[in-house]
Design a protein around this nucleic acid. Structure first.
Lengths: 346, 346
DNA sequence: GCCCCGGGATAGAGCGCTCTCCCCGGCCGT
DNA sequence: ACGGCCGGGGAGAGCGCTCTATCCCGGGGC
């Protein structure tokens, strides 16, 4: 920046006190004479002093930064590195995560360091960065089941909080949604609406959340007198939703209700139904999951199960902060309640 | 992390050499005897050494981090801080920017630090962070014209590169698209297709890019014998696209071609046209701009002007890197060429 | 009047790294 | 044979901050 940034020393000289006193004023620690405090404050003002982050980090062993890691399983080998990032952020879900995380971090003047780990190579890169102290801890959002990163982080002793329960148990904190509960809301709504031939499009069944949503849906359907629910597995994408619905429709042409495990697939379901001449919601009612932005832009707008992603992300950051500060040492899980949002599709 | 991370000193002791030598091996500087090099490398392996970033930053005065700042004009006063972040990332455009930036940074083991500046308060916060050396420079994506941040950064002497030419001139590098050129492609395509009653939905006219796209479109239309083009201003959102098209349709019911200044608005245009009983592309041809992910998911898929966002973002990072390293000192602009992508909508 | 006490300030020792300066020894030129 | 040069290595001075140990000094207890 300018030729030579002022240091604590400079401020101390101007204020006529010692470095230590200035430091105490800045960090608001121990009793400092109010008069001197004022003098120091003015000196800071006058010199335009800004504390050097690196120097502070060196002694405090804190970087005031957390890594926000988007982690894939490396299932798309030929894929360009960056394509992963683009694909990830194409999903409005991540925007909401970022939003929640930043909401917590910013008032504490911390920032998220964005990292992507979608291959063995990038994973060890991320691990190395963390061990170098680039960040005080990690917030991990996995896009796939069987993501090896959480275990690696746990082994390395990096304070970590996950978004969603990992499919293989790891001694790490996480936040998650009561997925079964959400599926129950969807099932009850469809049932109350009078639907009788109900099918569901699940997420990838390797993902715990998909399993839970399916299980919750089936339970409630069974309790409502529907022991059998046709199922098709999707991949959380629009295309996979269309494909899954296409299959279901072929076998069950009289379907009148669909529960899709996320909004993107619900959109695909709607599109396919329209292409096949079914009106939504008049012929077939469709319920999505997430309440993401596509739920609103979709025609018709989706009735969906809201996942409070921003709050969950903020809680994730708060949890990590506690771990980093050492206030909390044991892994903890925080489960959030979903909510049914009524729109036009069901 | 673990109880006590190994330091250079530890490695040096194990290898039986001095700190300086180990440092040289790690940074690959000056000639070191290959034999000793090997010994040091093994010592690093054995101790599990990872250089401390803070210590290194302190002396090199480099953080190996760049700030990726999304900057708004603070036009939505009542808005929650985080809502801004969510809104921003709802636009697939930013995902592509992140992708491009990360593509450049990662091979150099640098990371983007995510920051948002949408109010006077957060702007000065960002500025303070940068002055503290949290990042070596700033990559700025403004969502609004009249964004005061670029000027502030320039004044503070922070190495900065902007995405898109600022509406008020600032001594800062930027990357941008040849917007007029892109609009020309759209106009020519519509004309070649045989459209005769063509209208356009522009972006917010305070934004230079919107102006340029409009100007380029008008020029080409004029050159093609269409001196007058009905115009409606939108806000780059789906809703604003629908609203703008609604107005245009009322005044020009016989419209047969539309150029929308981005894909989101083009999607809105398509939706409105369908609601009003017009078929796309049979009754009305629609051309978008950006080639964002909605261009693909939209029904029908959009013919659009591709903006090579990832490349532009990568170039932005590269430019910043040069500024930071001092290789380049003068502000520079890099203009990229657009490309017409043909799909179903026109 | 002396001693002890404690609030308020300072001195100075690092934190872990880089980098400049210096030293050593072998090889060349004259 | 000797001095200079140069490749390869070491010693040590910081970078700017925090924090512990220490000091100073005024006041209260006996």
């Amino acid at each position: 920046m300018s030729r030579q940034a002022p240091t604590l020393e400079d401020v101390a000289r101007v204020a006529g006190v010692s470095r230590a006193t200035v430091s105490r004023v800045i960090n608001g620690v121990r009793n400092v004479d109010p008069g001197i405090q004022e003098v120091v404050r003015q000196a800071i003002e006058r010199t335009g002093y800004a504390p050097n982050r690196a120097a502070r980090s060196l002694v405090t062993r804190r970087s005031q930064t957390v890594a926000l890691i988007v982690s894939g399983a490396g299932d798309t080998p030929g894929e360009e590195q960056n394509a992963f990032a683009a694909r990830v952020f194409a999903d409005p879900f991540f925007g909401r995560v970022v939003s929640g995380v930043v909401g917590y971090l910013r008032p504490r003047s911390m920032h998220p360091l964005l990292m992507f780990a979608e291959s063995a190579e990038t994973r060890s890169q991320v691990l190395a960065d963390l061990r170098q102290g680039s960040a005080d801890g990690a917030l991990v959002v996995s896009t796939h089941a069987d993501d090896p990163l959480p275990a690696l982080l746990a082994d390395a002793g990096v304070p970590t909080v996950l978004f969603a329960r990992p499919s293989r148990p790891v001694r790490l904190s996480y936040v998650d949604l009561a997925h079964r509960e959400g599926a129950r809301l969807a099932a009850e709504h469809l049932l109350n609406r009078g639907c009788r031939r109900i099918v569901t499009v699940t997420g990838p069944l390797g993902v715990a959340a998909s399993q839970d949503r399916l299980a919750g849906f089936r339970d409630t359907m069974a309790r409502g007198g529907h022991p059998y629910v046709p199922v098709a597995e999707g991949g959380f994408t629009l295309d996979s939703g269309m494909a899954a619905m296409s299959g279901l429709l072929a076998e069950h042409p009289d379907v009148d209700g669909v529960f899709a495990a996320n909004d993107l697939m619900a959109q695909g379901v709607c599109q396919l139904l329209r292409e096949r001449g079914r009106a939504v919601p008049d012929d077939v009612a469709v319920v999505g999951f997430d309440d993401s932005s596509v739920a609103v832009t979709c025609r018709p707008p989706l009735t969906t199960v809201r996942q409070p992603v921003e709050e969950m992300a903020a809680a994730m950051a708060a949890l990590l902060d506690e771990h980093v500060r050492g206030v909390r040492t044991e892994p903890t899980s925080l489960i959030f309640d979903p909510e049914l949002v009524l729109r036009a599709s069901a």
